[in-house]
Design a protein around this nucleic acid. Structure first.
Length: 425
RNA sequence: GGAGAGGUGGCCGAGUGGUCGAAGGCGCACGCCUGGAAAGCGUGUAUACUCCAAAAGGGUAUCGAGGGUUCGAAUCCCUCUCUCUCCGCCA
């Protein structure tokens, strides 16, 4: 959520930002609407405060009069207080109404894009920030997509998942399960070595938590919900991990706070069908290691670069061809100010698969989270950032496809200490 | 699931209707003292909104949450919620 005070003093910047997000003139009216309501709110608040101050003072005087036994004087003052109270009620409801309406409108306003965000409406308009310079692997016509490889080597099984749960819940087995575990450990170790503290969070969260990182209300339909206990299954570790710092005033010298966590991720996403969602390309449950940072506003973009370098390093070590995209205004997530997507080349499907999304949310998320720090006397919102490092299912898909040989599937060097086998055959 | 106890500031803890944003202690910060430190002494130490061009300084709200009684609520009443203890069940 944008800060109201920011909109108040940076109206033009907000409007420009929303234009990058392809807001029409009609949609842009929301800004004026918010500012008008803010005016109403502040006026009623000032009036209300004065009113309450007066009642308070009168009440104290009444107390004094009673002690002196001046009953009649006191009683007439009571009437005054009663009248003020009437007015206060009215003012309060007017204020409350404005506050609620502002909140509602504010929830509909996305984050202001960073100045480097390219204009555009769809994924086609994303900028290739870092291309893959080397030739892409060519496996020839016999290359099998990962779902065929899964059958051939019995490493994961989607049909069994259907039996147990439903479509989109893969069962990994044998070396497939080991590979999964190896990748998780590899990613966690890498993050730890890069200075991230490992967190093992709950996989279910309450309403407040889901709201603070922005999953509620905008993405309610994407989450699995346990009605009986009013809990949501997490769609990403970002949710519980970032919420660790909800309502916390951070000590400035602790910046940047760097956290990592492995969790399964649960996503309902009723999406498109066909080849794009086959196999592990899009599933309802997948494993992911997430990195999260809470940073000082002055250095959050440095930290973002550091996160890009970290994710790049992982893909380099796994020897996977990848490229980095800078998302355009139309494709960027609602809450993000700047997002880079990592895509890995899947050699049998011959297409790029998104495996990581690294974003700086600036204060958009921290405004709801109320993650703050002291800047002198002032309390300011911190910046939050996060990124996948990395999402497993698609990495597995690409590893299987790219590394297939007639003898079997080669395990990248760096993973061998983790899998403790060299080949899936 | 059953029974009971309890939620007060960063922490501990006092406060059962009147000027209480809240005693006291601890912690923390700064200063004095000291060769330096400790001790000691002094000062300060919540958050949000708001008024003011800003600073200084005001105002309002907040004692788990919401509602009620009252001129006046941390204190009384109601609802909800969370935590703890005991019992039951259980990886």
């Amino acid at each position: 959520m944008l800060e109201l005070s920011f909109i108040r003093s940076n109206k033009e910047r907000v409007i420009q930002g929303l234009k990058t997000r392809n807001f029409t003139d009609e949609n842009l009216k929301v800004v004026d609407e918010i500012l008008a309501l803010d005016e109403v709110r502040r006026n009623s608040q000032t009036e209300l405060d004065n009113n309450l101050a007066e009642s308070k003072q009168l009440s104290n005087e009444i107390g004094g009069l009673y002690k002196q036994g001046k009953r009649e004087e006191a009683d007439s003052m009571k009437e005054q207080v009663a009248r003020l109270k009437e007015q206060s009620k009215e003012l309060e409801s007017r204020m409350k109404e404005a506050v609620e309406k502002i909140e509602e409108l504010l929830l509909g306003v996305p984050n202001i894009p960073h100045e480097s965000v390219p204009v555009g409406t769809t994924a086609d308009d994303n900028e290739v920030f870092k291309a893959w310079e080397n030739p892409l692997p060519d496996l020839g016509p016999d290359a099998l997509p990962h779902w065929e490889l899964a059958k051939k080597y019995n490493i994961f099984d989607l049909d069994l998942g259907v039996k147990l749960t439903g479509s989109g819940f893969p069962v990994y087995r044998g070396k497939g399960a080991r590979l999964e575990r190896a990748l998780i450990n590899f990613f966690l170790d890498e993050a730890t070595n890069a200075g991230y503290e490992e967190i093992a969070p709950p996989l279910m969260v309450n309403h407040d938590t889901a709201k603070a990182t922005g999953q509620l209300p905008d993405k309610e339909g994407q989450m699995y919900y346990v009605e009986r206990d009013d809990l949501y299954l997490i769609p990403t570790a970002e949710v519980p991990v970032t919420n660790l710092y909800r309502d916390v005033i951070v000590d400035e010298k602790d910046f940047p706070i760097k956290l990592t966590g492995y969790t399964p991720c649960f996503r309902r996403e009723a999406g498109s069908y066909g080849a794009h969602v086959r196999g592990l390309n899009r599933v309802h449950q997948f494993d992911k290691v997430e990195i999260v940072q809470i940073a000082h506003p002055d250095s959050s973009y440095e930290q973002l670069n550091q996160m890009l370098a970290h994710v790049s390093g992982l893909l380099d070590k796994l020897e996977l061809p990848y490229r980095i995209l800078r998302l355009c205004g139309g494709d960027m997530g609602f809450t993000s100010a700047l997002t880079f997507d990592f895509e890995v080349w899947s050699a049998a499907q011959k297409r790029w698969l998104e495996v990581s999304s690294v974003s700086n949310f600036e204060t958009y998320q921290s405004n709801r989270l109320k993650v703050r720090f002291k800047d002198g006397k002032q309390t300011r919102l911190a910046h939050t950032l996060n990124g996948s490092a990395l999402a497993l299912a698609r990495i597995v898909a690409a590893l299987l496809e790219n590394n297939q040989t007639p003898e079997g599937i080669q395990i990248p060097e760096v993973l061998k200490p983790y899998t403790r086998f060299e080949m899936i055959d």
